[in-house]
Write a protein that binds this DNA or RNA. Structure first.
Lengths: 207, 207, 207, 207
DNA sequence: AATGAATGAGACTTCATTCAT
DNA sequence: TATGAATGAAGTCTCATTCAT
């Protein structure tokens, strides 16, 4: 009984922290980091403003957690796509597709994770996650280069360029379909995929 | 006499406006939009804080003008590179090189223009300038596609992707050389250029 | 059995109270009253924050207890020095020496007890303990005056002045050795002792 | 006309700053540094809270100015008393008397200036003013020692002790007359003066 | 028209105290 | 009775914008 009580109390405590994280993630996904205040988060989470500070030492630390968990989820998705069987080209294509579809689903969040400058702490998180992204993309690219499937290239530069190209094309301010007729998602993905694969392989993708 | 006074007064007013814009541009180039306050701008321009509001209705409008003139300058530079004689590939390569070198010279400004979130007004400016960039890049790409020099592709998507890839690679948070040994600028430009040209043409560039 | 349980419970409660007091004293000795929070104390004492309020009605009351017990300890030390056999001068000298050495050993605590402003409740405690200090110092001074060993003087004023002079000289912001070369402790004690004894007796102390 | 306007504007501006300083001084004189908030000061000065920050970079800097100007006033008073003609003993007596009378007139302020711990910035101001006090007291003491009027002593220690003794006796928490019948001021000053002079000279003062 | 001091809302953060479990 | 998460008021500081001069 005592144990179960303790467990339920702990569950509630964790629930508050999770509610705060969820609220922060929701708001960041809607408005981006820079437009979200601690009070906004607290209100949406249904707690007092000061309560946020029981769970996170500062606004930066809260946002760092939001960033990291959201980024980790994205990296995991891409990594999973890459780990499927197939040629380097097939696996890279699968990874880019998944990356692109997820970004299109949550544009504001994708943008916040990839590009929005906020805080030195989160910026350093970005560097860390950049490395994890890089590990995923670079690995396939290197494998493709070594097997002769891809032409020689700087895998590190290529992986950064891939992320940038997809981000800009899909969710960036340069995205071609903010105020125009909403492009067919499949068509857009196909276009950027074709381009990315041609950049890496020098060849047209097979349908 | 009355006319000449009016003219000189107008000239002085315009001079003040220009000084404000120049000061704002300088500060944005150094610190990015988000770190620049109206008072900072006024001080550097040598006018009173309130005077800024005689020329610009709000901070957002001031920054919108800064954004537009800085962006226009960049677009002009790229457009000029594109207008030189040569094949579509040569002209595109020249444009990308100029874009890249300028971005590397002024990373903070480049980043502010391409990605920094500030204000809905400036965000909509970004959309407009994206169209102008597009006009420049798209035009060459379309010409290359029509002449058979480039494979068929969605020129609008390609041009956005080019900008994104270069921005991310050169000045973005995913830039591969923030914490590493500073890459040789020429080498970095060459890597990204090779990649971009391969994306567009499907072929390796000629040295 | 019931009795023994009650007793052990009471013992445990008392133990908690003592741990809280000890933790508070330790923290005050390190950081001064103003830098110590109730949660700090609870954590160091190994109890929940709210439990502090089962033993003390408020932070002020907790600190009042801390103040009183720490002050009592100091008063006892000085009183013990005074109660040794010897002339009034000898006993006073012993008391001042002990006072000074203890203050030098624990500057932060000494300063907190003598001067740090915290709360009206603690300030009134200070007045009470001033009386107890006074009783100790005044008694010897009065004896010395009555026996003709010391010149006539207002013993109450003298005893306050002694405390102030030693506090300021040894641990106060006017302390002459904060930013200079650390004076030899013995030398410093000797200087202030010579001065104090001359103030009281009008004569130089015998080495 | 234009000049006079400018002058009046400047006068008003300075008036605001002065009102803020005066308000801060008044509140510190009533409640001590630690009980005064920036909002309190602003309200009493009749300005918005934010306006305080147009004149002072931080609360610490505001209080530093308050501290310094109040301390300078006190040092000047003491220095003036010391500069009168007479023997070292007479001049020191005059300085201590003035110091004591002023402290009694404004106990809370005197305490705040001499002892209240607030902020590292103000604490360092205190060290600086301690040096200025020291220069005043030490100089006379050294002169008295050199002329044989005073016995040999560490003038630096003596001057700190003098300040501490007077502060504690007159305005400190050990002050003997907070809750008792208000001592006759002249009598109190005379007592502490007798004690201080005996401490320095080893002799009784002449009435 | 220019000035720049003043405004005041709002941001982040702390912490003594309370109360449901 | 003990717990410790939650509260919420209060504090410091920033800055876009206004307005009397």
């Amino acid at each position: 009984m005592a144990y179960r009580e303790t467990a339920s109390v702990r569950a509630r405590k964790e629930a508050a922290r999770d509610r705060i994280l969820a609220a922060a993630l929701q708001l960041v996904s809607q408005k981006g980091f820079s437009a979200v205040s601690v009070s906004d988060v607290a209100e949406l989470a249904g707690v007092a403003t000061g309560s946020v500070y029981r769970h996170f030492a500062s606004k930066a630390e809260l946002f760092s957690h939001v960033f990291r968990s959201a980024s980790q989820r994205e990296v995991d998705q891409v990594a999973q796509a890459v780990s499927q069987p197939g040629t380097a080209g097939e696996r890279l294509q699968a990874a880019l597709t998944r990356f692109g579809r997820r970004a299109l689903r949550g544009k504001q969040l994708a943008w916040a994770l990839i590009a929005e400058p906020i805080d030195p702490l989160v910026d350093s998180d970005r560097l860390e996650y950049r490395r994890r992204y890089a590990e995923v993309f670079e690995q396939v690219i290197r494998q493709g280069v070594m097997s002769g499937e891809f032409p020689p290239q700087d895998a590190r530069v290529t992986s950064a360029a891939l992320v940038g190209a997809m981000a800009e094309t899909l969710v960036g301010p340069l995205s071609p379909h903010r105020d125009q007729q909403p492009l067919d998602e499949n068509q857009l993905i196909h276009s950027i995929l074709t381009l990315c694969m041609r950049a890496i392989t020098g060849k047209e993708i097979q349908p």
